[in-house]
C-alpha cells in the first residue's frame, strides 16, 4: 500500500513540475500534499499529518491561487 501511494506521489510531483498551465500544476501540488498527509498518517505520525493537511492542502493552495490571480496563468518558458 505504501509503495503504491509513493508511486502516485512521484507521478503527481513530476506532473506538477512539467505542467505548462500553472493552475493544473497547483491542482497536482494539492493532490501531492493530500497524499503526503496520508503517507504520514500511515507511518504512525498523526500530528505531522495534521500539520501537513492544514498547511499543505489549505494555506499553500490559497496562496498560490492568489499569486496566479495577480500574475499570468500560462508558463512562458
Amino acid at each position: 500500500m505504501t509503495v503504491i501511494l509513493l508511486v502516485l506521489v512521484l507521478i503527481l510531483s513530476v506532473y506538477a513540475l512539467a505542467a505548462r498551465d500553472l493552475l493544473h500544476g497547483i491542482i497536482a501540488l494539492s493532490a501531492v500534499s493530500l497524499l503526503c498527509a496520508l503517507m504520514f498518517y500511515l507511518l504512525h505520525a498523526p500530528d505531522v499529518a495534521i500539520t501537513e493537511a492544514a498547511v499543505g492542502a489549505g494555506i499553500t493552495t490559497v496562496v498560490f491561487i492568489g499569486v496566479i490571480r495577480n500574475t499570468e496563468r500560462k508558463d512562458r518558458g
Binding site: 494539492s30 493530500l34 489549505g58 493552495t61
Partner: peptide
C-alpha cells in the same frame, strides 16, 4: 482538520 482546510483550497480554485 483535512476536511476543513481542504475545502478552503477547493473553494479558492
Amino acid at each position: 482538520v483535512y476536511d476543513i482546510f481542504g475545502f478552503l483550497g477547493f473553494l479558492a480554485i
